[in-house]
Design a protein around this nucleic acid. Structure first.
Lengths: 155, 155
DNA sequence: GTTCGTGCAAATCATTTGCAGATAG
DNA sequence: CTATCTGCAAATGATTTGCACGAAC
């Protein structure tokens, strides 16, 4: 479920560059390194995990934090908190598919899920053998008072 | 939307004691203090906020952390991460109503929401004047491999 | 009386900030 | 060339742990 289509190395790079350009962010080596991992691999990843994957390119952990912060502001990545350890991030830019996750409360396995209808999903999860199911759903948006302006890039 | 019914002080205390008994937790003064706030007031609250409200009763911040941890294990409280600052917790025991939240991405106002159907909600939010809406939905449960056992107390 | 919970101090882990030098456009 | 990034060091903030004392059942 929710397989990101496999992209070639060149293609991933091209997508990454387009994403950065679209977001008005300079295409630096660290940003490309981090973003290409997010686009090319299954996530979501913690800051540490991302850092592990890019430190061979001499990218500092702090830089990973800053890259992710700028990606978040542009909506290129989304944040996932599974209630254990550190927060995770996953690619949500061009070509990504809207999905959610199921986290096993014991082994912490993370599975992706295409469907997006709460009750329906829980029924499906039960059929798949999940038990003790709960979910968390939060909405974010600009309230009427704060008005529609240059903030978060979704609609 | 999603008003918790107002409870009297005595009633809150009784509910709190029942919750603790049901969860096999000793009814200590700090636990009652924290739990009564969660039951009686609108949340969700951060650890600091809860501590502020109970430090007059000489409850230590560390104890608040430990209370919440035990409440979480018993499903008495649920965890909410709104992506800004620290995580928040809200009462989900006896008498509480299933709901979700809308967080303004600018002023950070938190509103509760009774409805629980993703697309429908976003339409309603738009009618209420929200824009740039996004949401996060995660599921938790025991996967088939981990089997149904004495873990998290939901079904 | 045991077992479980608490306070306090201190450790650990996650995240942010300041600043001088490097680099993309 | 100039504004934007980056690395490194150090600060801050959140959460956890160790241990001896105190309280619930």
């Amino acid at each position: 479920m929710a397989h990101g289509k496999k992209h070639g190395k060149k293609e991933v790079e091209a997508i990454a560059i387009r994403c950065l350009k679209k977001a008005d962010l300079r295409a630096t080596k660290p940003r490309l390194a981090v973003l290409e991992i997010l686009i090319g691999s299954h996530g979501p990843f913690t800051m540490e995990e991302l850092h592990k994957k890019v430190e061979k390119d001499d990218v500092d952990l702090v830089t990973v934090y800053r890259c992710i912060a700028s990606f978040q502001e542009s909506g290129i990545v989304g944040r996932c908190d599974f209630g254990d350890g550190p927060v995770r991030f996953e690619y949500r830019g061009e070509g990504s598919e809207h999905h959610h996750h199921v986290v096993c409360t014991k082994c912490r396995k993370i599975q992706s899920f295409d469907y997006c209808l709460v009750d329906g999903i829980e029924k499906i999860l039960k059929k798949e053998g999940y038990s003790h199911i709960s979910h968390s759903l939060e909405f974010f948006g600009l309230c009427a008072k704060c008005g529609p302006d240059e903030h978060s890039p979704e609609s």
